[in-house]
Simulated scan of single mutants.
Amino acid sequence: MTLILTRSVIRSLLAEAGALAEVEQAVARAHRDLALGRAVLPAPPAMRQPDGEGAYLAMAAASAPDGLATVKLLADLPANRERGLPVQRSAVLAADAETGACVALLDGAELTRIRTAAATAVATGALARADARTLGVLGTGPLARAHVQALLPGRAYEHVLVWGRTPDNAQSLAHWITAELGVPAKVFTDPRSVTEHADVLCTLTPSRDPLVHGDWLTPGQHINAVGAPPRADHRELDTAAVLRCRIVVDAYETALAKSGEVLIPLAEGALREDAFRTELGAVLTGRAPGRTTDEELTLFNSVGVGLQDLAVARLLIDRAGERGLGLTVDLAS
């Protein structure tokens, strides 16, 4: 039997008390499993549409501890913007790792948003200074809200600084942060001001061209580069910013396949592959150091990986089963 979890069911499961903390724990465990050889994560192949800008990515993973093999088909279709549709759409297929039976089919939107923010929270915990008090957010969409929700509980942040291309959206996000999460939030008119004043900076925009420049950075900052789509020509940080940082990636092979933050400096000859070989799982297991000094600039280059999808799919499948939620069908009938 196959469990089908719609977006509304997934949203309800993730809204439960303690769910976001469990997601963060699951994502951290998945990265440790990868570092310890208990999970498999190949680089995702990109299938380009021959007659347009669209692309499809098959994000696969397998985990022995979670007993699953999964693949998320991610559609990245810029033309959808003009249609009034989401640019990115996805669904996750989960199979039993032992029998190959199709265990579940899950809508990918909420799952992706929450696991992405959870990975950022895990990386920030491992890499940011212990005395970081100011969180900067570039971008105002659903991913920004998910990040603020994921990051604020982990540290005693005193302020959140917000910038967005649409001032009204930035004001709305800042008001929500202050009213709902209880942390003062302030809107800035440009990304430079947010960057210069943030201890922890999250870039959460689908930008093609850099929003953050190297000469804006100050010693001791931690940066999470998250928002750029999986395209080699898109990035939120310029080459100078990347070169100033010690880089940690979620997965080396995936970053090499689809991260503009590393591929563009690599093509320019400004960066060698060794500079971004350190994976988050290696830091979490102690195989690689986290932050080494208070003055060091650290960068988590988040491209999003299928193993994060698998970890959260396992959590959602188990929670839905316990609560009798979702639709069960027999695909073989």
Score class of each variant (00 low, 15 high):
Met1Ala: 11
Leu3Cys: 03
Leu5Ser: 10
Val9Thr: 15
Ser12Phe: 00
Leu13Pro: 01
Ala17Leu: 07
Ala21Ser: 10
Glu22Cys: 07
Val23Gln: 03
Arg29Glu: 13
His31Cys: 04
Asp33Thr: 04
Ala39Arg: 09
Leu41Trp: 04
Leu41Met: 08
Ala43His: 03
Gly67Gln: 08
Gly67Asn: 04
Leu73Val: 14
Leu74Gln: 03
Leu74Thr: 02
Leu74Asp: 05
Asp76Tyr: 05
Arg83Gln: 14
Gly84His: 06
Gly84Arg: 09
Arg89Met: 15
Leu93Phe: 15
Leu93His: 09
Leu93Asn: 04
Ala94Trp: 01
Glu98Met: 13
Thr99His: 09
Ala101Cys: 02
Ala104Thr: 02
Gly108Pro: 05
Ala109Glu: 14
Glu110Asn: 05
Leu111Ala: 06
Thr112Asn: 12
Ala126Phe: 10
Ala128Met: 03
Arg129Thr: 02
Leu138Glu: 11
Arg145Val: 04
Gln149Phe: 00
Leu151Lys: 06
Arg155Leu: 06
Glu158Asp: 13
His159Lys: 10
Arg165Gln: 11
Thr166Ala: 14
Gln171Arg: 14
Gln171Thr: 04
Ser172Tyr: 07
Ser172Lys: 12
Leu173Arg: 11
Leu173Gly: 02
Trp176Lys: 07
Trp176Thr: 06
Glu180Arg: 09
Val183Pro: 13
Ala185Cys: 08
Lys186Glu: 15
Thr189Val: 02
Asp190Met: 02
Asp190His: 08
Pro191Gln: 13
Glu196Asn: 07
His197Ile: 00
Asp199Ile: 07
Leu204Gly: 11
Ser207Arg: 09
Leu211Gly: 11
Val212Pro: 05
Val212Ile: 14
His213Met: 12
Gly214Ala: 10
Ala225Pro: 05
Ala225His: 05
Val226Ala: 14
Gly227Pro: 07
Gly227Arg: 06
Ala228Tyr: 09
Pro230Ser: 07
Ala232Gln: 14
Thr239Ala: 13
Ala241Asp: 14
Ala241Phe: 10
Leu243Arg: 15
Cys245Gln: 07
Ile247Lys: 00
Asp250Asn: 13
Asp250Glu: 15
Ala251Phe: 05
Tyr252Gly: 03
Ala257Lys: 04
Ala257Ile: 04
Lys258Asn: 10
Lys258Pro: 00
Glu261Gly: 08
Ile264Lys: 11
Ile264Gly: 11
Ala267His: 03
Glu268Asn: 13
Leu271Asn: 04
Arg272Thr: 15
Ala275Ile: 12
Ala275Asn: 09
Arg277Trp: 03
Thr278Val: 13
Gly281Val: 02
Val283Gly: 00
Thr285Trp: 03
Gly290Val: 00
Arg291Lys: 12
Glu296His: 01
Phe300Met: 02
Asn301Leu: 10
Asn301Ser: 13
Gly306His: 02
Gln308Cys: 08
Arg319Asp: 00
Arg319Phe: 01
Gly321Met: 04
Glu322Met: 04
Leu325Gln: 08
Ser333Asn: 10
